[in-house]
Simulated assay, not measured.
Amino acid sequence: MTEIKDFHAHVYFNPESREAAARVRQGLRDRFEVQLGRWHDANVGPHPQSMYQVLFAPEQFGEIVSWLMLNREGLDILVHPTTGDDVADHTAHALWLGKKLALNIETLRKMTS
């Protein structure tokens, strides 16, 4: 077993769902000790859609992921650990809430090679 440093949740949105993404973000900010990343209104890294990232500790996983399951407002969310293997973290170790989006894994491979 590899050590999990922390978790990332990537909350995906488009122009029509940006307000819903803002409500989810505010809910996370109000309820949890998380680190909220900036809004990315264009594709960044392996992510095929606009998104923001939420970073949280392993001991928060159950509470935060449970909350996201019930309060994601129809948004697609990627949750993955940080183990030091970016490719595996975004693929084999990942879980999806909503639709599984096609990530550009080649971007991660280039960043780690």
Rank of each mutant, 00 (worst) to 15 (best):
Y12M: 01
L55N: 15
Y52K: 04
L108M: 09
T112G: 03
V79Y: 01
P81S: 01
L108S: 14
D86N: 13
M69H: 12
L75I: 10
T91E: 07
H8P: 02
L28S: 10
H8S: 03
G45F: 12
A57F: 03
R18S: 13
H8K: 01
E59M: 14
D76I: 02
P48A: 02
D30G: 07
E106G: 02
H80W: 05
A92S: 13
A88I: 04
W39F: 12
S113K: 10
I105W: 10
G45H: 11
P58T: 14
L70W: 12
A102W: 05
P15K: 06
V44I: 15
A57G: 04
D76V: 02
I77M: 01
D89S: 09
G62N: 12
L97D: 04
E73C: 10
I4F: 01
S17K: 09
A94F: 02
R109N: 04
K5M: 01
K110T: 08
D41C: 04
H80Y: 01
R38I: 11
T82W: 05
N43L: 15
A9D: 06
F32W: 04
R25M: 14
A9R: 06
W39R: 08
G37Y: 02
L103C: 00
L68W: 12
M1L: 02
A88R: 13
R29H: 15
N14D: 15
R72M: 08
N104F: 03
